[in-house]
Computed example of a mutant assay.
Amino acid sequence: MIWFLEGQSSQRDIILGAREALPAEVRIYASHRQERPEITGHADVSFIEPKDNQERIDWALETALSHAIKVLLVGRVGSVFEAQRARFESHGLQLVTGGTSLRTFELVDDKSRFTAEAERAGLACVPALTVSSAEELVAAYEQLKTQGEVCIKPSVGIYGQGFWRFKEQADPFRCFANPDAREVSFTTYLDAYGKSASQPTMLVMPYMPGSECSVDMVCEAGRPVAFLGRRKQGLHQTFEIDSTAVELAVQAAAHFQCDGLVNVQTRDDADGKPHLLEINPRYSGGIGYGRHTGINLPGIFATRRLGLSEPAQNWKPDVRVKAITVAVPAAN
């Protein structure tokens, strides 16, 4: 028995991928803190999770034991569960959080610590200067702008929230009229940052103009066993398995001791050389797209964790995928 707790919206794809690979007699459990039958309805058994993170720990442990569940994949707040790993393992349960210890989360959740550790390990990464005041922001910008375009993002965060490119020609109102462009003049940003009641820690970085590669992978105690890179090309996404970006992502996942279904993001510089952006110790929103290439990462994860024969990786090159919105009934 395997249980997929609340994760990204792609939790639905995780369940479908696992169901495709697992024998019919293996029951799949799924849960969410909201009523999401379009996600959990594809499992054999579904639950509504408690909203409080600490309450979820006790509930998850009790529920797993009462249903003879063997493997639990944590989709969100992996660090909260990781801190309680010993409790689950003492009952013979496999807890999969995204890392093998709290150190993984300490290093990857804070982007400044992640950058420092990647540089120490000799892994190519986007260099960054950490700032926590208007004065430090000015100094970092002045230092980097001589090298080209500069960008900024929070030291802690997901989904690219808080990322901005500094464009001196940007109209001061542009960031409000077209926020998706992620472009703002440095003076406008500095004025807002300086007036903030609490100035959050930010990373100031050179902007790399190349494309971004999002690498989804299955890891086991720091060992990547299956992986697939995705790039956005206009309206479509393309895939790769043996590029330098994928190789860098695999090395990073191993160094940071990732475990489970994780995602590593890289970005190419002007010469096409990939640099690490971040590691997400959880599956990505687009992990399900890979099934169209013949590589079923959720299925590989589920079968290996349960000691079953994993699905063959029938790699299909030159596949392009376009995501679409589909309406589904919300009733159970």
Rank of each mutant, 00 (worst) to 15 (best):
H67W: 11
P317W: 12
F227W: 03
F88C: 08
L277D: 08
G307L: 09
Q94Y: 14
Y141A: 01
T325H: 15
N332P: 14
C151D: 04
L277F: 07
G194T: 09
G41K: 05
T130Q: 09
G157F: 01
Q265K: 08
P329I: 15
E135H: 02
L277G: 11
K111T: 00
L276P: 06
A86E: 03
N53H: 05
T325G: 15
K322D: 12
W59Q: 13
A270S: 10
A124W: 08
G294T: 02
Q237S: 04
P317D: 08
S101T: 15
Q11C: 14
E142H: 10
S79C: 07
Q11K: 06
S112G: 10
G17S: 15
G148N: 11
R87A: 14
P298Q: 07
R267K: 06
E35D: 15
G17Q: 10
V204P: 00
A221Q: 04
Q237L: 00
E6R: 12
E49T: 10
K70E: 05
A253Q: 04
V246T: 07
R165D: 02
V264H: 08
A140F: 06
V138E: 00
P329Y: 13
D191G: 02
K70M: 04
F4L: 08
S66I: 01
I295H: 02
I57S: 14
Q199G: 08
P172E: 04
A181G: 00
D52T: 04
T100D: 09
E106D: 14
Y159K: 08
S185R: 08
Q94P: 10
K322N: 12
Y189P: 01
R320I: 00
K70C: 01
E149F: 03
S155R: 05
R320V: 08
E135L: 03
G92A: 13
S214R: 02
R165Q: 06
F173M: 15
A331P: 05
A331N: 13
F47G: 07
R56Y: 00
E106Y: 14
R182I: 07
Q237K: 05
P127L: 08
T266D: 11
N178T: 08
D259C: 12
L190F: 01
V26K: 11
